[in-house]
Amino acid sequence: MPEEVRFFGRLSLFALAAGLIYWFLSYENAGTVLLLGFGVATGVAFLVLRGGQRRAAPHAAGGASDGDAETDTGPDGPFGDESAPVPTRSAAPLAVGFGLAVVVLAGAFGPWFVIVGAVPLLAGAIDWLRAANRELDQLSAATHRDTTDRSPGA
């Protein structure tokens, strides 16, 4: 089992044990609920990750490594394909995050914040979507070119 999965299991056991001990020491509700809640949350994360790992195991080709095995190459999984495209640099995610934060502040400080926040939010979102579309078009064009080059008639 990979260390990152065991990590959640250990946290869960620790927090559940601490929660139980705390309850019998103090009979104090808030602290007990927080400790046990942390234990349950990490336990759920552990079970989900372990389930995902078990489901993935039969599909792993030729007993592919989980990252701990001694391989000479880099890691498997999302970083295994070195030819994967990298998005171009952009300030759009920053603009969206900033805009969203300002819009949410409207709940506390008044509706003007929606107008102020909407400008960077919309500008960033439009820029981001356009860039993503452009990159997807370029990628599909490159894939199409690659397929055409490799076809028997080519």
Partner: peptide
Amino acid sequence: IAGLSMGVWAHHMFTTGEVDLPF
């Protein structure tokens, strides 16, 4: 440190009198 850090918050609340001090 990560695990223990989630279980020590009430040392900021010792003087409230509403938490178990030894724990």
